[in-house]
Write a protein that binds this DNA or RNA. Structure first.
Lengths: 220, 220
DNA sequence: CGACTGCTTGAGAGTACTCAAGTACTGTGG
DNA sequence: CCACAGTACTTGAGTACTCTCAAGCAGTCG
């Protein structure tokens, strides 16, 4: 019954913390997306760099046969949309009403000091994304459904620090992220509650129990 | 019974193809490792950049509870050992007698033109590694054991182009790479043969049947 | 030849999946 | 405010796939 060992799964992607109040706002454009709206599409040309300002974003990949994989979720401060080749290998959609900073990558060199700094940050973000992917692989191969779901919920709840947390994503999103089916996710959510680790208020509002948090801190 | 759809899993990591005859040899040191020998350790400081010249290399991560994950295999031309933080998050071992080019990353700036090029290449390699990790995640969550093993064998056999190919890694390595147990890998290898897709000569020498290759090319 | 390591095969168990209802929440129109 | 539809989530029963445990086989080295 390990439920907190994988709190380390999500490496912090926000380079300068989750406070997007940086001098970069001058460079890119602020765009607003409604819930479910597509930010960029798979196979689309990729010269843009994105950063979440407000809200949350889901990155999705589709296999030819329709199987879906959620590559990651992004929150304020996180960079996303980084690609090496010229094309996006996944699409990104807003999970809720989201504000996104969009920066043209190829234009960075015309922005002097700030452009250089941002370019370096985008490389760092790529590296962090790689770490995240590697951690996630570990989770996908070596953890049970219960461990995956409870660990995921812990990560989401961590910033709330004991207060109520909100799940921006659907059960299906979580399932596609954790490599499970929607039914299994649902069952594990129920089990997490049955074991008294967390409490839910509706399907998308939950809280980690005090004694669970203590146990996890002690383990770490 | 899809067995070739995941040939695309392994994105080519060798930036300039698999021919390591580049002007970089002047910068780094050539090191030789015996089979099983450790190239670098998990949690070790990471300022070095590695490139396979001859042989093959395995990258491994260990969980606290002993569960093991093979992060990837590297062949001549491939870069490995790239890290963002100051520490290696995985270890690397030689699978056979291997020659590796080792370059001090922080020294790159003293090598002028070539150093700059190499630095850029190392960033590109990070990006490719990320693509690879993302593809691999897709495989781990959305493919059956049979698909994983047959796809893996296809990738390994691809360069041989119909001739006999050699498996440098053990069944356990394959299992830890594909997120399966050693027994399941073994069973799938048997099944791949039973279905007439490939033939094995001993445990580590195999060949893809002609009609299988045709079918896969047609599918792609 | 025997010991060792790596691989294969078998039987049974367990976990997650599939299919199928049933329940809760959300928004719309009366 | 309620009825309704639609979507999202939960729960149940049965199945299938992979794992675990255990034994047997094959190649290698002393």
């Amino acid at each position: 019954m390990t439920f907190c060992t994988l709190t380390r799964d999500r490496a912090p992607t926000a380079i300068a913390g989750r406070t997007p109040q940086d001098p970069f706002d001058a460079i890119g454009a602020h765009l607003r997306f409604d819930a479910g709206e597509e930010i960029y599409a798979q196979d689309e040309d990729a010269d843009l760099l994105y950063r979440v300002l407000v809200g949350s974003v889901r990155r999705t990949r589709l296999l030819e046969d329709g199987r879906r994989q959620v590559g990651g979720f992004y929150f304020p401060g996180d960079f996303f949309g980084l690609e090496i080749g010229g094309q996006h290998r996944s699409s990104a959609e807003a999970l809720d009403t989201a504000q996104v900073l969009v920066i043209q990558r190829s234009a960075l060199k015309y922005h002097g000091e700030v452009g250089v700094r941002l370019e370096r940050m985008s490389w760092l973000a790529t590296g962090l994304e790689l770490q995240r992917a590697q951690d996630h692989m570990m989770l996908l191969t070596r953890k049970s459904a219960f461990e995956r779901v409870s660990g995921f919920l812990f990560e989401i709840a961590a910033p709330a620090n004991g207060a109520w947390a909100h799940l921006a994503m659907s059960r299906q999103d979580i399932a596609d992220y954790l490599g499970l089916t929607i039914e299994t996710v649902s069952r594990m959510v129920s089990q997490v509650q049955a074991e008294g680790l967390m409490v839910f208020d509706g399907a998308r509002r939950f809280r980690v129990m005090q004694h669970t948090r203590r146990a996890c801190l002690a383990a770490a």
